[in-house]
Design a binder for these strands. Structure first.
Lengths: 202, 202
DNA sequence: GATGCATGTAAGTGCTCACTTGCATCTTAT
DNA sequence: ATAAGATGCAAGTGAGCACTTACATGCATC
């Protein structure tokens, strides 16, 4: 095949799946190549080295993530709707690449190149959401007796552990359609009822 | 030193810390030995192999866990108190061994021996808590419009991601005293206000 | 049908890792 | 003092891994 295009994609797909399943360090280049149905040498002709595969994956990843900011909330939406939508996006995005982000977040502590790739992604996401929470507290939409960072942590804690349980630890069923799944709304609702003003008489 | 006793403990302590930080596969026996201030050969004289260290760690671990059931709640406690106490115990226990359990839960998918060690630990914990939640729903202590398993998942999701952020990903400050820490109570309170009956008019 | 390009095959290099072996040293109990 | 047991040290073995090199094959285009 002269289809040099598809080869790169197949390698990245295989790498994404294997990294997510086993982590970066435990995934061999041989396994990636085999899983992509490609010779190992081809992998090294396409990418400078194993780290290069990870880097390319990172670019593809952040391209997908591009539209995922809280900021882009239409005015017509209630805060509850915005956060539920964000939760579904968060879960869908993380599920889509097989829990890759969560897995890599774990690897980051032991694998320097992973840390470099992930960079400030997660902390800054957390901070961004905390800012949003604080803003909504100011507007009286969220209870103010709780640190906004705690609210943000609770939010991401629920979404990330939702994916973690299912993709990494194999606990619980995968949702058929993230956009409409009942269980996700229930889980979100526990958070929301706890975070909204008026929920607890505060 | 003829103190053969302390040596084993020091090796296990070092292994626990390193496994938690880097994961099982990424931790070398050399690093364990060095961190324990012991020759690598000594490690292999004390334990049959690397897996043996993990197994010994597992026994010590489940010994510590022994008293950590929800069931042991005194009658004088409210449900809120019981769950908060459980949350603090959960967090303290997981922090104490440096996020080891969470880290190993991740490794389990790629490292068969880790999976064998962890066994059914986490799923059964989840189920046990779900049973408790269902019971409290029956007594009118918790809102009934949410699947008890979702409540259990939300609970463990918050406690485990609390530890995950701090120990594994290095985000946020470590609590000085888990038993009294304010942040933990706030985080729990988000869950509680969302889970309790009457919190949301349901 | 010749040229170029992507891929496959086979073999190998150098490194790190789990784990071993042989011997010296130190501590403790007798 | 001596014997026994725990530890250290130096060196090595075999396996797996990332990555390389040299060469052959197939598919397009001109």
């Amino acid at each position: 095949m002269g289809a040099g295009q598809g080869t790169t994609e197949r390698i990245l797909d295989a790498a994404s799946e294997l990294f997510a399943q086993r982590g970066y360090a435990a995934t061999t280049t041989r396994a990636i190549a085999e899983s992509a149905g490609v010779n190992e040498v081809t992998l090294f002709r396409r990418f400078e080295n194993k780290r290069g595969v990870l880097a390319a994956l990172g670019e593809r990843f952040s391209a997908q993530m591009a539209g995922r900011a809280v900021a882009a909330a239409p005015d017509s939406e209630t805060v509850r709707e915005t956060l539920l939508r964000l939760a579904r996006m968060e879960i869908a995005g993380t599920l889509q690449n097989g829990g890759l982000a969560i897995r890599l977040a774990f690897d980051a502590k032991s694998v320097p190149e992973v840390a470099a790739l992930l960079g400030e992604g997660i902390p800054s996401n957390l901070e961004g959401l905390a800012d949003y929470m604080a803003e909504q507290q100011g507007r009286g939409e969220l209870r103010s007796d709780i640190d906004p960072r705690v609210l943000a942590e609770a939010f991401f804690g629920l979404t990330s552990s939702y994916v973690m349980y299912r993709m990494v630890m194999g606990i619980g069923d995968l949702p058929e359609d993230v956009a409409t799944d009942e269980g996700i709304e229930q889980l979100f609702d526990v958070f929301w009822s706890g975070a909204a003003l008026g929920g607890d008489g505060r």
